[in-house]
């Protein structure tokens, strides 16, 4: 297997002083789904923005390390070039264009496409994945429900025909039933289109249920990694991210010690 995406010791600074990623490394195999887990503030969104070139807008920058997409270094490249290379991020919080119709949102997603004549067929393909969107194609996106907006955010991404998708908390603020539907479609996109996916989630159980591999982040670093099964079985992950602790609640410190010791031994 070859790596579609590889981050090596990536460091990110905001405003020249706030160090948020402290030597982060991870790798996503071609055609796989990788989950990036971690609690609020761990640096997951920052990681995705570093990859997709969106740090600029917030005065952030990759100050060390390399990011390779399909064998080519892309750290520091402008966002539009990265999209053109086939890497597309679905940003956190849906962020649909509220005053554009569903259809116009999809056309905006295809902004970098040169084969404009194929757009109508691709729009129909998105409506196949998300029939709700098809029913509302002429409505302004601002009037869609939260679930429909998430579908639109993903549909917009599909319109770019990316080889790799970065998804930032697609379950955020959605009812559990809807979330299951969205995750089924993420899995279908991966299987049917062969799209490589890096999925950021707070809901670890859900993410690991469709992922091949997972990383757990804390304080701007990867602290744990393994196949989805390994992580699902891991004590720390079970306790802190799956809510399945066996030994009762231990303090956060204890777990840190435990983790450190384990690493020491292995």
């Amino acid at each position: 297997m070859s790596a579609m995406l590889e981050l090596n010791n990536v460091e990110v600074l905001y405003d020249d002083v706030i160090l948020v990623l402290r030597g982060l490394s991870l790798r996503v195999e071609q055609g796989s789904i990788a989950a990036l887990l971690g609690s609020n503030g761990a640096g997951k969104t920052t990681t995705l923005k570093a990859i997709s070139g969106l740090l600029d807008l917030e005065d952030g920058a990759v100050t060390d390390g390399t990011i390779q997409f399909d064998g080519e270094e892309i750290q520091g490249a402008p966002a539009d070039q990265i999209v053109r290379k086939g890497l597309f991020q679905v940003v956190e919080g849906r962020r649909v264009f509220e005053h554009l119709t569903v259809r116009e949102n999809l056309i905006a997603g295809a902004y970098t496409r040169r084969d404009r004549s194929e757009l109508p067929a691709d729009i129909e393909a998105v409506f196949d994945y998300f029939p709700r969107l098809g029913e509302r194609r002429k409505q302004h996106a601002g009037y869609l429900s939260g679930g429909e907006q998430q579908m639109l955010a993903m549909g917009r991404a599909l319109m770019a025909r990316p080889r790799m998708l970065l998804l930032d908390e697609p379950s955020l603020g959605l009812a559990p039933l809807l979330v299951r539907g969205i995750f089924d479609i993420i899995q279908r996109i991966n299987e049917e289109q062969g799209t490589t996916i890096l999925l950021v989630e707070q809901n670890a159980r859900l993410a690991l249920s469709i992922a091949d591999f997972g990383y757990v982040m804390e304080n701007g670093r990867v602290v744990l990694e393994g196949s989805a099964e390994e992580l699902s079985g891991n004590e720390d992950v079970r306790e802190f991210y799956l809510g399945l602790g066996e030994v009762g609640r231990r303090s956060y410190r204890d777990v840190k010690h435990y983790r450190r010791r384990k690493r020491w031994l292995s």
Partner: peptide, 17 residues
Amino acid sequence: IAMRAIADDQLAALSMG
């Protein structure tokens, strides 16, 4: 369409190139 998109949400517009 891109101009209207960027007026609505700059970050989202950038994310699609």
